[in-house]
Computed example of a mutant assay.
Amino acid sequence: MRTVEEPEVRTWDFPRGIASIAVMAAFAADHGVTADRVLAGTGLAGTALTASDLQVPAATELVVVRNLVRELAHVPALGVEVGRRYRLSTFGIFGFACVTSPTLREAISLALRYYHLGYGFCTPVVESSDGGVLARIHHELVPPDVVRFLVERDIVAMHRVMGDLLGHELAVSRIEFDFDAGDSAARLAEVLGAPPEFGRAQTVFTLDPAVLAQTLPQANAQTWSLCVAQCADLLQRRSARTGITAEVRELILPGGESAGIASPPTIEVVARELGTSPRTLRRRLTEAGTGYRALVDEVRCTLAEEMLIGTPLSIDDIAIRLGYAEATPFIHAFKRWTGTTPSAYRRSRVR
């Protein structure tokens, strides 16, 4: 029996968390390149790298990729080495859902279903049959100047994460690339466990089908169900705003400090960034069924919920990170947003 699984869309142009940029910045720092140089042209400050709840457009990560490739062009097999830095912990609740999956097959299906919660630029399409498991790596939409780096980074990151899921190194059966050999052939063979073939018709790698049925060491049905529900909720919230509201929301988020938005930009600043007037921006937001203050509150609510669930920060600390002088007005605002208090929300979600 043959099955084919793939993400809903094959574009890389979706918002993503800051964690992938943080991985690349840490790699650059290990090679003597400062965060300012890696983040040049993104509008992000170095403090954003620790803002675990921050979302950025894919184009922002692409700027970082180009900066990294330019700054570290002398590093052999750069895409491979950067890909090795991606671990399950890089993917937050998405990674935790994968690690608690019953089998590797279930984890791969989950990863494809919630592909937009990751950081990929290449899109895997997985074909399974009794004869083996083949992953076709589509990169037709990846810009040519960084395609080798991103193909190697994404494939090696997938391989590293699958090894983390299994609890041991995973060897691919075969790996082919649809571009010419570069300086990474030997390192790819060492990392993936098979000699790569270059100049082929497509980019693919294959796995032994027996590995898909293996029970994962940290499989836990109850935790898995909870994590999958949280992934669905997170994906829904990330995709809820489109058009002008998405553009405004993205401009609100990068202005934050640490994991919050203690100093959100004014509507005048946002309008200037969008090349329009505050009056026109207000009108467009009204037409979209919202307003600037409502979007600031929406961002604050989202960050508050994620900090309550995903961090040990106190209520006072979260309030300060969201721009409140003390906890009391934050508690009142959170109850207005959600119908419950921050403490009750945390107790209901964190077990």
Rank of each mutant, 00 (worst) to 15 (best):
M162T: 00
E273D: 14
E306M: 11
A259S: 09
C231P: 07
E305A: 02
A25L: 14
F14V: 13
P76N: 14
S184W: 01
R279I: 13
V211H: 04
F91R: 11
T203R: 05
I93T: 12
Y114E: 07
M1E: 08
R283Y: 15
F334H: 03
R279D: 08
R293A: 11
S173R: 14
R153H: 03
P265Y: 01
H116R: 09
C227F: 06
E268M: 04
R2S: 05
T34N: 00
M1R: 04
P124H: 02
Q222L: 13
R346V: 13
I252C: 05
Y119V: 01
R66V: 10
G339Y: 05
F14L: 08
E106A: 12
A181G: 01
R241S: 03
P329T: 07
P124A: 10
F91A: 04
W337L: 04
G43T: 05
E140M: 10
V33S: 07
L235F: 11
D183A: 13
I320Y: 01
V269C: 00
R283K: 08
I267L: 10
A51V: 03
L251V: 12
L192C: 04
T50M: 11
G323C: 12
E326N: 13
G260C: 05
Q236C: 11
D164F: 09
S129W: 14
G32K: 08
D154A: 05
F14S: 02
V23C: 06
T341Y: 05
R336M: 06
G46R: 07
C227R: 10
C231E: 00
F179H: 12
I244W: 15
V4L: 15
S128P: 00
A73C: 05
Y86H: 08
A259R: 10
P342L: 06
C98D: 04
L110W: 04
E176C: 11
V9P: 00
R293F: 02
A319K: 01
Y345T: 06
V156L: 02
T338N: 03
S20N: 04
A229D: 05
R84S: 03
H332G: 10
F94Q: 06
W12R: 01
P124E: 04
A288T: 09
T266W: 07
T123I: 05
A221R: 05
G118I: 03
L322W: 00
T328M: 07
S184K: 09
G118W: 03
E6Y: 07
S128M: 03
T266A: 01
L281E: 00
D164C: 15
A246G: 02
L251C: 09
V82Q: 08
I331R: 00
P124T: 06
G118A: 08
T34M: 09
T100A: 12
L188F: 06
G131L: 14
T286M: 11
P143Y: 04
A344T: 11
A288G: 06
G275V: 02
L104A: 03
V75E: 00
E247I: 12
E268Q: 02
Q214G: 01
A19I: 12
A294V: 03
L62N: 11
G132D: 13
S343F: 05
E6Q: 09
V270H: 04
C227I: 02
P209R: 07
V296L: 15
